[in-house]
Computed example of a mutant assay.
Amino acid sequence: MSVEAGGAVRTEAARGGTGRPHDKGAGFWFGRSGLVVAGILAAIGGYLAIGIATMDVPEGAKVPGPQFFPTLITIAIFVLALLLAVQTLRHPEHVVEPAARHRFHTDWKSLGLVFGAFLAFALLLVPVGWMLTAAMLFWCVSRALGSPRPLFDVGLSLVFSSCIQLAFGAGLGLALPGGILEGIYG
């Protein structure tokens, strides 16, 4: 943008330019950083697909079987990766003003809290059990995302992890780790 005589503000596009400060030599990747995320999603989908293909399935497994839900999730990941890639290729993000280049920031505190919660979940899942570790994970993620009601989040996390425990146990016949509560509901 520029200010002309008389106080009129004109953008680069109004003067005939494209509004992008880095037009010369910007290359294909300019404004297409979303392709990196699409690539990461596709890699995760590939990892899951290999895991599903090499999964040991008992011969007497009932339909839909242990590969059904992971297959649905893997398909959804591939579809999202494809949609993100198409969207990024069709509509790359263009910087209108040089000051707009730094409009995003990383919230390291929230990122650290979520990472720590996932690490604690992975380490405590077997000894503590699904219900409590999943509730802890859900609660930590809600805190990292800025939820203002910690007591409500604890209750909701326990209800949510209990419902998942019930769905896996009663609905699918799969046992999630019981941990310290195993004698109570296991």
Rank of each mutant, 00 (worst) to 15 (best):
60 G>D: 14
134 A>Q: 03
170 A>F: 10
3 V>L: 12
77 I>N: 02
136 M>K: 04
157 S>F: 04
99 A>V: 15
181 L>R: 01
132 L>R: 06
55 M>N: 08
10 R>C: 07
168 F>G: 01
134 A>S: 11
4 E>S: 07
112 G>W: 04
21 P>M: 01
160 F>G: 08
141 V>N: 09
118 F>S: 04
16 G>I: 04
64 P>L: 06
57 V>K: 06
160 F>H: 06
89 L>V: 08
37 V>E: 08
99 A>R: 12
122 A>G: 13
148 P>Y: 01
50 I>P: 01
125 L>Y: 12
12 E>R: 13
121 F>E: 02
107 D>M: 08
106 T>D: 05
133 T>S: 09
159 V>D: 01
93 E>A: 15
101 R>N: 05
98 P>N: 08
180 I>G: 02
55 M>E: 08
54 T>Q: 14
109 K>D: 08
33 S>V: 11
76 A>M: 06
93 E>L: 13
96 V>S: 14
7 G>Q: 07
110 S>T: 09
11 T>I: 07
54 T>S: 12
4 E>F: 12
168 F>D: 00
147 S>C: 09
53 A>G: 05
105 H>F: 14
178 G>V: 02
84 L>R: 00
170 A>K: 10
15 R>H: 09
167 A>M: 08
79 V>L: 14
135 A>W: 03
123 L>A: 13
157 S>W: 06
173 G>S: 06
118 F>G: 04
186 G>C: 02
27 G>A: 10
148 P>K: 11
14 A>K: 09
77 I>G: 01
183 G>K: 15
25 G>S: 00
14 A>N: 02
30 F>Q: 14
174 L>K: 10
10 R>Q: 06
138 F>G: 03
44 I>T: 10
71 T>W: 02
112 G>C: 10
59 E>C: 00
166 L>S: 06
65 G>K: 00
34 G>S: 03
175 A>D: 12
65 G>S: 03
72 L>N: 07
186 G>R: 10
46 G>C: 01
125 L>M: 09
135 A>D: 06
175 A>L: 09
72 L>G: 12
134 A>K: 01
160 F>D: 00
159 V>T: 03
92 P>Y: 06
167 A>Y: 04
86 V>G: 03
97 E>L: 11
62 K>E: 13
48 L>R: 10
66 P>V: 15
128 V>H: 00
102 H>V: 09
116 G>W: 11
131 M>W: 13
71 T>P: 05
103 R>E: 12
1 M>V: 11
129 G>T: 00
178 G>H: 05
123 L>F: 13
94 H>M: 13
177 P>D: 04
155 G>S: 05
40 I>V: 15
86 V>H: 11
113 L>G: 04
185 Y>V: 13
